[in-house]
Design a protein around this nucleic acid. Sequence first.
DNA 1: AAAATCCTATTACAGGTGTAATATATAAAC
DNA 2: GTTTATATATTACACCTGTAATAGGATTTT
Lengths: 127, 127
Amino acid sequence: MIPQISDAEWQVMNVLWENSPLTANAIVHALQKNFKWKDMTIRTLIRRLVKKGALSYTVDPKDARIFYYRPTVSFEECIDQEKESLQKKANKKMGLLIASFIDDVSLTDREIDELSKILQEKRDKNG
Amino acid sequence: MIPQISDAEWQVMNVLWENSPLTANAIVHALQKNFKWKDMTIRTLIRRLVKKGALSYTVDPKDARIFYYRPTVSFEECIDQEKESLQKKANKKMGLLIASFIDDVSLTDREIDELSKILQEKRDKNG
DNA sequence: AAAATCCTATTACAGGTGTAATATATAAAC
DNA sequence: GTTTATATATTACACCTGTAATAGGATTTT
């Protein structure tokens, strides 16, 4: 089962999905570019993610104090959970929601084409 | 500022967005069709929503114990918050996320047309 | 008017979250 | 080897959430 990942924890996961394994220190540095979180705050988030089973780590053979962290769950799996949670909220109004998503986000031409294709396929399946 | 609405509280809001004002009793009945929540649980959710300012109520002139609840915030405003929260999580990968949404949800032909149109407009705007 | 009923308000309680400070253990530097 | 620096672990703490039970007050029923 995919563990439940909180808002703040997501930011830690994002760093590691981009690049892993990383030490706690590296994660802290990466996050402090975008967030004003104290060092200890970020290390707490990391530890909680390990406890939840969303991260694993290996110990540096040269220095047993240093851990290398990596995700045990994929971005896709996790975003899927969020999607389901949002679906429960939106109830029947998913069309409206998706429209608002598209409207709101900037997309490249390539992404737009990709989405159009998916819609086209969906229409074919409907019919 | 739109208040933060929890998962369970969303279900209460959904009932009232469909039909309001309603008494606590009516809300309870509506929700118990879909959820196995105790009466008292639902009333707690209602009270918390009032406290947060997401619901307001008026007292029945015939019976001061009965309150009529109604939303003070719209579905659109609230779903917008959720959208932003999800965007923060998805980081740069919104295209992927939207694709997965579309893929996953059942949409009517009408909705598909609507979305295609929005995409088309977006492409035009992209230049 | 006493009892039963039915609302809302108060209280409960554990687990999750945001946000750290402090303690402890180990490695590095003298 | 003793001090110093640094990593992880423990502890903190208030607020949010899910999930109710109980208390208190008004009303309807007997």
